[in-house]
């Protein structure tokens, strides 16, 4: 639905830290489903862990946070790129490890959205199995 070029209009992150590849579903202000393809070529697999590649949980959270930014901006006409995006709180439970070759499907739905902040519920699945779930709080601030 949204390819990488469209995603880059919403997200300020770039290589090597753009952590979603495609938006599969977008219901403005209500729901985002995004996909992150996890390749063995990811730099972090070199060290996490040598000979036993597992995607770091914090990077799953980063993917979730970037999908959450898409949700936050999805029903806004104007995106001010000068504002900082800040993650305020993370409550995430990891249920299964994520390996090279997996395709992370990240769903984000709002619990509360205001003009400058959002609390969202997030879930990540690999082949219909939930691998992580939780809640994130993020905000935008001038600076």
């Amino acid at each position: 639905m949204f390819d990488i070029t469209a995603i880059q209009k919403f997200l300020p992150q770039r290589f090597p830290f753009l952590m979603i590849d495609r938006v599969l579903e977008l219901d403005p202000g209500k729901k985002v489903v995004a996909c992150k393809n996890v390749s063995i070529n990811e730099g972090f697999f070199a060290g996490h862990f040598p000979g036993k590649p597992i995607m770091p949980g914090v990077l799953i959270i980063e993917s979730m946070a970037q999908a959450a930014i898409m949700l936050f901006y999805s029903d806004r006409e104007h995106i001010d790129k000068k504002k900082n995006l800040l993650l305020g709180s993370v409550k995430v439970r990891f249920l299964h490890p994520v390996f090279p070759g997996d395709q992370l499907k990240i769903s984000v739905e709002p619990l509360k959205i205001t003009s400058a902040a959002a609390i969202v519920s997030v879930s990540a699945q690999v082949e219909n199995q939930e691998v992580a779930k939780g809640e994130l709080a993020l905000s935008i601030k001038d600076e």
């Binding site: 305020g88 509360k112 205001t114 902040a117 609390i119 709080a137």
Partner: peptide, 22 residues
């Protein structure tokens, strides 16, 4: 901070099934 205040508001809304404007 402001983020925690929003979390408090959201938690109250959820617990008591009310809606409080920002």
């Amino acid at each position: 901070d402001s983020m925690m205040t929003l979390e408090i508001l959201a938690a109250i809304e959820k617990k008591y099934k009310i809606s409080i404007p920002e």
